[in-house]
C-alpha cells in the first residue's frame, strides 16, 4: 500500500475537528486560540496535499497560499493574545465564562 491523497485529507479532517472542539469547548481564552491554530494547521496541510497530488508539479500556488495563511495566522495570534492581555488587566481573568460584559 502507498500513501495517497485521501490519507492526508483524513489527517487534515481529524486535526480540524480536534481544533474545532478545542476552540468551542475550552474555558481559557488562550486555549481557544490554540484550537484556532490547530484548525489553521489542518487547512494548511490539506492545501499542501492538494498542491502535491492534484496540481501539476511545477505549480507552487498552493505553497504560496499556505505562506499567506501562516502570515495572517501570525498577525491574528499576536492580536488575539494582546486582547487577552487587555482583558486580563481589566478583569484579572481570561476565563470566558466570567467575561460577561455584553450580557443583557
Amino acid at each position: 500500500m502507498s500513501v495517497e491523497l485521501s490519507h492526508y485529507l483524513m489527517v487534515g479532517a481529524i486535526l480540524f475537528s480536534i481544533g474545532l472542539y478545542v476552540a468551542l469547548a475550552k474555558r481559557n481564552a488562550v486555549g481557544i486560540l490554540m484550537g484556532i491554530e490547530l484548525m489553521f494547521n489542518a487547512v494548511n496541510l490539506t492545501l499542501i496535499a492538494f498542491s502535491r497530488f492534484v496540481s501539476p508539479p511545477t505549480d507552487v500556488s498552493g505553497h504560496v497560499f499556505v505562506v499567506f495563511v501562516i502570515t495572517v495566522a501570525a498577525a491574528e495570534a499576536a492580536l488575539a493574545l494582546a486582547l487577552a492581555m487587555v482583558i486580563y488587566r481589566n478583569r484579572e481573568t481570561i476565563d470566558i465564562d466570567k467575561i460577561n460584559l455584553m450580557r443583557w
Binding site: 468551542l24 469547548a25 475550552k26 474555558r27 481559557n28 488562550v30 486555549g31 487577552a84 492581555m85 486580563y88 484579572e92 481573568t93 481570561i94 476565563d95 470566558i96 465564562d97
Partner: peptide
Amino acid sequence: LTPRAARDNAETFL
C-alpha cells in the same frame, strides 16, 4: 503573563 488566571485547561458548558 496571566498568573492569576486559571491554568486548568477545563471545558465550558459547551
